[in-house]
Design a protein around this nucleic acid. Structure first.
Lengths: 133, 133
DNA sequence: GTAACACTTCAAGTATACTTGAAGTCAAGA
DNA sequence: TCTTGACTTCAAGTATACTTGAAGTGTTAC
């Protein structure tokens, strides 16, 4: 199995080494081997880091990730909790997308509005109304 | 023009009074009138607060909001900066949506995977592979 | 008149997620 | 041997966006 130094894993995942040490401290990365005192990661850690980044990208708190990865250590015992956690997170992401899409159209309206004003300024006409753009 | 106490504006916008005071401190809410020492808001503040919440919902930093509302005080002088700010923010939201949609399908895969495991456990079958769910 | 209530100011505190700095270890190269 | 570079640990610091607490003011209810 391939192994990685902290520098390699850092570059592969675009994550600062300080964050990798932090994730280990708080138990998001577990069973990190040592060669002397230096950390040696493997493909398991690479995969977990991708999961961490997926969760992070979608706004999951570190506390929930800690829960999730602890549950994952004994899936049969925690299967219901795991399903609840991921299902709730799925709903949360859908909600975030819905909010962003709604607000995006407000922002797009603003973009049209201010472009209209700029055009009016350069052409020395009167400014558009918010409603008409 | 309608006016609002801090409590009314707080309830109308679902924003803690402490946040309203904070927004005023840092210049996001401006020209707040006083009746004695008590803040009196109006429809202008209500509208601005909706804008603040739109920006906040879409992840804009307070620093950028400060820029935006300062620019808005003199639109002709800052029209290019305003257009750049809102256009960049539009692109930022689109990027956020794209990331969320991509990660959502990962999470949905996880939901299917763990539901498959639960089913396998209850029916005493062997667990599904990640790829097959 | 006094208690309750809604508000005020201002400084300090909070949560999250890391980052930074100081001091030290260890192996390889000149 | 000495220096450089990459790593180590651990405590303290940082950024963002507020919140909380203490102490005070002013108006209404009994």
């Amino acid at each position: 199995m391939k192994t990685y130094t902290i520098r390699e894993l850092s570059q592969l995942t675009n994550t600062p080494a300080s964050a990798l040490r932090y994730y280990e401290d708080i138990g998001l990365l577990t069973n990190v081997a040592r060669e002397g005192s230096k950390r040696i990661y493997n493909d398991f850690h690479l995969a977990r880091l991708h999961a961490i980044q997926c969760f992070k990208n979608t706004g999951m708190s570190i506390a929930k990730m800690q829960d999730f990865f602890r549950y994952e250590e004994n899936i049969p015992e925690h299967i219901d909790a795991i399903i609840q956690l991921v299902t709730e997170h799925e709903a949360d992401i859908e909600k975030q997308i819905a909010i962003l899409q709604k607000e995006l159209s407000h922002i797009q309206h603003k973009v049209r509005f201010y472009n209209g004003i700029k055009k009016a300024i350069t052409e020395d006409r009167c400014w558009p109304e918010w409603e008409e753009v």
